[in-house]
Measured scan of single mutants.
Amino acid sequence: MASQGTKRSYEQMETDGERQNATEIRASVGKMIDGIGRFYIQMCTELKLSDYEGRLIQNSLTIERMVLSAFDERRNKYLEEHPSAGKDPKKTGGPIYKRVDRKWMRELVLYDKEEIRRIWRQANNGDDATAGLTHMMIWHSNLNDTTYQRTRALVRTGMDPRMCSLMQGSTLPRRSGAAGAAVKGVGTMVMELIRMIKRGINDRNFWRGENGRKTRSAYERMCNILKGKFQTAAQRAMMDQVRESRNPGNAEIEDLIFLARSALILRGSVAHKSCLPACVYGPAVASGYDFEKEGYSLVGIDPFKLLQNSQVYSLIRPNENPAHKSQLVWMACNSAAFEDLRVLSFIRGTKVSPRGKLSTRGVQIASNENMDAMESSTLELRSRYWAIRTRSGGNTNQQRASAGQISVQPAFSVQRNLPFDKPTIMAAFTGNTEGRTSDMRAEIIRMMEGAKPEEMSFQGRGVFELSDERAANPIVPSFDMSNEGSYFFGDNAEEYDN
């Protein structure tokens, strides 16, 4: 993207840094990872977990959730003011799984939030270390993106479920800051804005008074975040219109849905970061690795190297396929839920299948599930090659597409044709070009129609051997075009429920 120079890199967003050079960025990201790792080690000690239990991804998720809940100030305040039966607002906890007599047992633990905050700050040299908290939120978000298709949420806001490739980060909490905003897809931002506008339509006082002023500035800020994701002048001009509207209503909703559809071809720039579970960072720190000293990046080879040398386990339900569970977590670790499966298959070195073909449910185990038949197995999170994460949407291309997802959002900077089903997408653009945004709409449609099938995206960008740390010898991959490109292809993934 041309304006790259004016933006802070995501590592800076990730670490609240002012302008830093590459070495400083690597050190501050490393410091953040160190903090998460030290916190995780301490929690495993508190909970008396064995090494194996500490490497269980379900335990990692519970521990991450506990610290996120302990620092969720708004919710904590709300819980104190609106006490609900049987919930102690000062405590947080969740299921911890232990191996007892050759069987997995679930144990519900409860801790004072104050105590968890103390352990977290102690692991982070006394700081609140917001960057580390956001990092864990993005890992949870990436896992949700890989596990669930947001059909219901899309339909509720009037969008087409086939636009799911635009929904990265749709389950990120509001408090995820600049680093969170960077990884949100165009569809996620559109959905947040539509929800806001709908509230304004239904509630006369939404934009009024002292609160209304705050609401208005939040609305304009979200519009600017979305505008910054678009790469064409016409899309940005249309966002200006939406932002400046005196009284946002149905016309703005129409414009936003139009823009979301246009992003299936004229893709937005959305950041991709490899955020790993805390149970990967903990053992690495415990083994003596100093992330701050060595430096770390979320968008280069580092996460690949770390996963190459990590042992992570997962509980497996009786009829689940461990290899499929591994694929789910591998995609989440690489922030690749909406990437082209052919690119992923090449990088991973084994075939990556669409969601609907995987015999696996989510990673988390519900409290009512029976533990008797639970097994555990090693997650295979290694890769054959590594590639640089991208934040450009890439230019655009036609490809055989599917009944489910009709476009992709690249996660890796790797040369390819970008699949999208042009006739299906263009069919949504018939007729409606009147109104105050008509010239911009016409211009956007013209650009979409001009998108050429034979153009290559990320020209000359390749993948790298894991021994090639400096990215000196790019390998331009070859793809098996007979395979499906979309992950949520004609899909039956479970729906995400809060």
Rank of each mutant, 00 (worst) to 15 (best):
E292L: 07
Q409M: 14
G86T: 02
A278D: 05
E494A: 05
F71E: 05
E294A: 01
A428S: 15
G5E: 09
S314C: 15
P161S: 15
M167T: 07
E53Y: 04
S367T: 08
T433Y: 00
K90P: 05
F412V: 15
L466E: 00
P283R: 01
A403S: 08
M163E: 07
T157W: 08
A131W: 12
Q231Y: 04
S9Y: 02
E449V: 12
P161Y: 09
G393N: 10
A181M: 13
L47M: 12
E115Q: 02
S383K: 07
E18D: 00
G249D: 10
V183W: 09
R355C: 10
Q398S: 00
G169Y: 02
K351D: 10
S376T: 03
Q405I: 10
G393C: 10
V285P: 09
I388H: 10
A131H: 01
R470N: 11
K184W: 09
A131Y: 13
A237G: 00
G295W: 10
R26G: 13
P95N: 14
L68F: 12
E252N: 11
S176I: 04
I197S: 03
P453E: 07
A85K: 00
L256M: 14
K293C: 09
G200C: 06
S297I: 10
A336D: 05
D88C: 00
I388R: 01
Y40A: 06
R150H: 10
E254K: 09
M163H: 14
K98I: 01
Q241C: 08
S245Y: 11
A411Y: 09
C223L: 04
S217A: 06
A442W: 15
V414L: 06
R8I: 11
F39A: 02
L143T: 05
I119V: 04
N321K: 14
R65T: 02
Y496K: 11
Y97C: 09
G300L: 09
S84N: 09
T45C: 01
K293R: 05
G200Y: 10
N144K: 03
H135C: 09
E292F: 06
A403D: 09
D88K: 02
S50I: 03
D128I: 00
G187S: 04
A271R: 09
A263M: 09
F338A: 00
N483Y: 14
V29S: 03
M238W: 06
K7Q: 14
